[in-house]
Write a protein that binds this DNA or RNA. Structure first.
Lengths: 211, 211, 211, 211
DNA sequence: AATGAATGAGACTTCATTCAT
DNA sequence: TATGAATGAAGTCTCATTCAT
């Protein structure tokens, strides 16, 4: 009994320490990038020694993977919560929720970049997280199409187009290349408008793509 | 006379060598990223010694800037050539021309990432190249609106939405997360369709965004 | 308590290691000169790895500055100890104490040379150490003049002449260009004799400088 | 005939080019020191290419030796010219003539330093030049002693003491540690005074070294 | 004879990782 | 379990020297 409790406490302490280190790593990685970040910086930020880092993770690389995994998990949770009866709301949710803070955008870009250099990051970030979002979006689009509230456009393409746009905006924001004269909310509405009036069922019969 | 020819030849040789080195650098950087790339790899790829690298560029960093500059210049040329009487054509051009090859997409992602860490890359890539594309797109959208062939949507927003989408698709492609069951041409058409039927003037009066 | 002891021991270990490295650096620098010395040699001489060097000093340059600082400190201590009631003793002290060993003479020449190339060395060596010696000498000469035991010669000039002679002898020794047929003690006496019979009050009224 | 003239012209051209390069080398070496000087700098200063340097000298090291040789030769000439009937004049000549310009002082310090690292420089500078000066001084002191115008002090010691002082002053000047409130002429007189009233025969019988 | 681009050895420095305390 | 000093591999960059033109 007492032993179980002890083990429990110990495990919780270990988990807490791991989280503390991962949080520090996420901060440093997102700011500096993986290669430029040093284990010394991460240790300082986590307020532990470099040696301790290696008691919880086998290598700097595993730290990155840990951050990616945590990010993917968090994403999964959020996606599960997204309500999307309404398309506009779904898009707004995706845009707003995803890249609200600079840190989130920077992490996004970090993984985008590191995916190409680290197969584990690719696994957790691209396969698990990104595809999950895309597939979820796809399902909702299929639902809306079935409901007759959206034109019968290929849902695979539609979902990817939406995702691409959201990702692109994250990058534009991060590079300081976005729209400054509009509020994020207004921007969300406008983008939704652009998409909607092409994605949903058209009344106007003549509304065909011809430019 | 003979001297002039000599100087001419010399200058051409220097320019050629510089281009040869930049090309090697672009390849290595695009594959490995800036930090992971080594000057030895670049030298090997360029088939010169490491010392020679430094006869033409003062540092590894300047090599990256050189690649960014060349990329931005090439982009500027291509943009100038884009014909865009027709919106669909313009979008197809932007999508197809930009990220045709893997190398181009990788360079794009390299600069996207390095912009955050190198003020010169940000200058050449984000300020010069990216903003140039966005502004050009904006002008064309304004033109189409004036012609009555497009809904009067804020051109700033519209241009950025298009750019974000294109950038996002580049990333999706590069991560192997795109649509495999569709040909690039078909994909281009579909994306154009999605955008068009929201950006152009709507006949159907009732077609408002409500989800 | 135990912690304090631990910190104490740690600090002493660090100080010892630093001293060990500085000593090695002093040896290598004094033998090879700053530019010719390599960090590898210094590390080998200190019996540590090159990396360890950089745990204690930020650069090769700071290693040199460290040596200069230590040298200046040591000099200051010695100067404070020089007894100079008697002029002959003072001169003998200055000559003998300063450049007794080859290593000290070589360090002296190293700093003499490096002062022109390194502003910090100039600071520590010329400003702190050398000027301190000269000023101290000046004070003692003034004292002897006041006591009527020395001719009223400009103490600024006299102190610098003495210093110049001592420095010059150090160089002559180091270059193997000095007097081999005389013992150091005998030499000291003779030089003192030369100086004395010009610096102290002259009884012989006719003894004026004319050659 | 014509051929001889041609050879003559050719040889003179070569000598001139060599001198031009040596002069540049002297400037750069005296400013930067041997190790810090680059062949590129020397070539630029001499207004020739780096390749040309190697047509006239086999290595950077030989450039230094060449400069040392030229310096020693120049010194020999000057020494031959020094008139020294009068001791004061001799000393003044030695002090003033030798280290008039900053460049000469810097060269002096360069050779002082490099003698320890380069056996050829040691040969030309220490053996040839410095010992020549010292020996010449010795001879003149012997002469003055024989004339009864100087006390019978060991001429070996006396000559070295004078040389040491002069060298020391050169260093003090170069380090900006000398006397600013006195003109060079006045300084020379004062130093002469100090030396004289110890080196020449003393009338005052009681004037013995006792401190 | 002059040029200067090319070379590559070797220097300084960084930093992930280890391990004795 | 935590620490942080020690390590050494590896990276960037410099520069004396060579050699084809």
């Amino acid at each position: 009994m007492a032993e179980l409790q002890l083990n429990d406490r110990r495990e919780r302490r270990i988990a807490a320490r791991k989280a503390q280190i991962l949080d520090a790593a996420a901060q440093v990685f997102s700011r500096q990038g993986y290669e430029r970040a040093t284990t010394r910086e991460i240790a300082d930020m986590a307020d532990v020694s470099e040696g301790t880092l290696y008691n919880y993770f086998n290598s700097k690389r595993e730290l990155l993977i840990g951050v990616a995994k945590a990010y993917a998990d968090q994403l999964a949770e959020e996606i599960a919560r997204v309500e999307a009866e309404d398309f506009g709301e779904m898009l707004a949710n995706l845009m707003a929720n995803r890249f609200r803070t600079g840190r989130e955008r920077r992490l996004f870009m970090l993984f985008l970049y590191e995916s190409r250099h680290n197969v584990d990051v690719h696994q957790y970030y691209v396969q698990d997280a990104m595809h999950r979002i895309i597939n979820e979006t796809e399902k909702r689009i299929i639902f809306l199409i079935e409901q007759g509230r959206m034109r019968p456009i290929d849902p695979v393409v539609a979902a990817r187009t939406l995702s691409a746009t959201i990702m692109g905006f994250a990058a534009l924001f991060e590079l300081g290349a976005s729209v400054e004269h509009t509020s994020p909310e207004k921007l969300g509405e406008q983008v939704t408008d652009i998409f909607l009036n092409g994605l949903r069922t058209q009344d106007g019969a003549g509304a065909r793509a011809r430019g």
